[in-house]
């Protein structure tokens, strides 16, 4: 029993420095994050980045995610994309990093990557309305109305009174020649947002 006590004390003594170091690290990290928020609020993005780079470790999801965002804000899109992608590789099933990386990728014009990130998000969370809506918009912009309507339809089923989704669903129906459905949907948009010019434009094209 005495031996057991001794062993526990010995192990505790050995572990103590590591615990103290981790506690110190956590405090340093928290201070760096806190400072970065202050810099960000003051639009001092370079300073915010420098602060986080001082405590950077490549295997930290949080640091990579935050650096991705700050680089995006400072207009360094390729660097932003690199940090976001590191975050994605660290936590492949997290969708927030993918929602982050689409900003710099879109700014770089890499729309295929943007589309793929939304598709990956939908693999994890098939009913994600933001991903569905934005993916629908990409398809709509590329005149792929058959793909677009599936995205908008899913959103409208989940949120029948959502202005953006109902409006885009209406326009996509119109583009596919489904004028009867489009008319009903444009009128529904006018219930959500009376006097909406886009819906009125749509209805004028049907009449």
């Amino acid at each position: 029993m005495e031996i057991l006590k001794k062993t526990i004390v010995t192990v505790a003594l050995y572990l103590l420095p590591a615990v103290i170091v981790n506690a110190q690290d956590a405090k340093v990290l928290q201070a760096a994050f806190s400072s970065s928020y202050t810099h960000e609020a003051n639009a001092e993005y370079s300073k915010a980045i420098e602060t986080l780079k001082g405590v950077y470790t490549a295997d930290s999801y949080e640091l990579n995610l935050r650096l991705g965002w700050l680089h995006y804000l400072s207009g360094l899109f390729t660097e932003s994309s690199t940090y976001y992608n590191k975050a994605i590789s660290l936590m492949p099933y997290a969708i927030e990093a993918r929602f982050g990386v689409v900003y710099p990728e879109a700014a770089l014009g890499n729309w295929d990557k943007v589309k793929n990130h939304y598709l990956e998000i939908l693999k994890v969370d098939g009913s994600n309305t933001l991903a569905n809506y934005r993916l629908g918009l990409i398809y709509y912009g590329k005149e792929d109305y058959n793909a677009a309507i599936k995205c908008f339809e899913k959103n409208v089923n989940l949120y029948p009174f959502d202005y953006d989704s109902v409006l885009m669903f209406a326009w996509t129906n119109f583009k596919l020649g489904k004028t009867r459905e489009a008319k009903v949907l444009f009128n529904k948009v006018l219930l959500i947002k009376p006097g909406d010019t886009s819906a009125i434009d749509g209805l004028s094209l049907i009449k």
Partner: peptide, 9 residues
């Protein structure tokens, strides 16, 4: 390469 980033441009 540009089309590999944005195939429909």
């Amino acid at each position: 390469k540009a089309l590999s980033f944005n195939a429909d441009d």
